[in-house]
Simulated scan of single mutants.
Amino acid sequence: MTNRIRYAIAAPKARQAMLQFEEYVEHCGLELSLLRLVQTRASQLNGCSFCLDMHTKDARAEGESEQRLYLLASWREATCYSERERAALEWTEAVTLVADSHVPDEVYERVHTQFTDEELVNLTLAVASINTWNRLNIAFRTPAGNYRPARKGASA
């Protein structure tokens, strides 16, 4: 696959705006491990190989188990996720696939038992952020496979 546009070079201010959005999401108070599951699951649904490469590598570097990453596509049948993680994954799927079901009330009710109002807004922003990154990387064919996570403890 050939990279169509290097969007970070073509529109650096747009990339900077996305990085600021991502900075908020990364520090909004939700668990980093939960954010990595959300990022990975949305990227699976969207078929974004660049983001899958990035977020699974980041998750592993931050201590996530390979088993939980392997089972993520079938999280409903797997027993290794907490109720909060399961709720976040259900919300991720509903928001990512919003055109299919418009985020049903029963999904909202189940998820809202695990997240405060503020956390649910932040979770929704996390889903929106990864979906935007997925769309940029898929549309412009950003090649996957070369991502290296930052060293643990290194400054960003």
Rank of each mutant, 00 (worst) to 15 (best):
L97F: 00
L97D: 13
V98I: 15
A99G: 05
A99W: 03
D100N: 10
D100F: 01
D100H: 07
S101G: 14
S101N: 14
S101V: 06
H102K: 13
H102Q: 13
H102E: 07
V103F: 02
V103Q: 00
P104F: 00
P104V: 05
P104T: 09
D105Q: 11
E106R: 08
Y108H: 11
Y108T: 08
Y108L: 09
Y108N: 06
E109V: 13
E109S: 03
E109Q: 12
V111W: 02
V111S: 01
V111R: 03
H112D: 11
H112W: 03
H112M: 11
T113I: 01
T113C: 02
Q114P: 03
F115P: 13
F115W: 02
F115S: 10
T116S: 15
D117L: 14
D117E: 15
E119R: 08
V121Q: 06
N122I: 06
L123M: 12
L125N: 06
L125Q: 09
A126T: 12
A126W: 06
V127R: 05
V127L: 04
A128M: 09
S129H: 01
S129M: 12
I130W: 01
N131A: 12
T132M: 14
T132C: 10
N134F: 01
N134P: 03
L136P: 05
L136H: 04
N137M: 15
I138Q: 04
A139Y: 07
A139L: 15
A139K: 06
F140V: 01
